[in-house]
């Protein structure tokens, strides 16, 4: 887990290899990115809602994007998405599903829960780099952060 004063991108990914590749790609895109990687769903919710180990830390205030895997220990990606959307404080927080699954039912469920984007991880590395860089560029730079979130 990388700690930082403020976190702009939260990556929730349990597979350490995928996490390393994704972070590599993110840093290739922006070497100064403020990134936090968590590998289980419960931790991710604690972070977003400033509970338990994240209580009283203000680092989540600058959160611009959550990159969420679907298959996660304890609480899966769709459940995290649901809780984020149910809470008034995080209702507008940009969430992108980044997964290996192209299952129709997963895509349908994610969109009906209000995901901002659904991206399937490409196997081929160069393509993967390109996808992740494009994503962070879009949500961190191009897109305006919603107003009124924590």
């Amino acid at each position: 887990m990388e700690q930082a004063d403020r976190v702009e991108v939260l990556l929730v990914e349990d597979n350490p290899d995928d996490a390393e590749l994704t972070m590599h790609a993110l840093k290739l895109g922006d070497s100064k990115i403020n990134l936090l990687h968590l590998n289980d769903g419960a931790e991710a919710l604690n972070f977003v809602f400033a509970k338990k180990s994240f209580e009283n830390k203000r680092i989540q205030n600058d959160l611009k994007l959550v990159l969420l895997d679907l298959k996660l220990p304890k609480i899966d990606g769709l459940e995290i998405l649901k809780r984020i959307r149910e809470d008034e404080r995080t209702r507008t927080l940009p969430v992108v599903i980044l997964t290996s699954s192209r299952e129709k039912k997963d895509i349908a469920a994610a969109y009906s829960l209000g995901v901002n984007s659904y991206v399937v991880k490409p196997v081929e590395f160069e393509f993967y780099m390109h996808v992740v860089k494009t994503l962070t560029l879009y949500w961190n730079t191009i897109n305006e952060k919603p107003i009124g979130q924590i």
């Binding site: 597979n15 290899d17 995928d18 590749l21 290996s100 699954s101 196997v123 081929e124 590395f125």
Partner: peptide, 12 residues
């Protein structure tokens, strides 16, 4: 889901 992830890791 599961067979693609190691491939992606190898390639990556």
């Amino acid at each position: 889901h599961d067979l693609r992830a190691p491939l992606r890791a190898i390639d990556g």
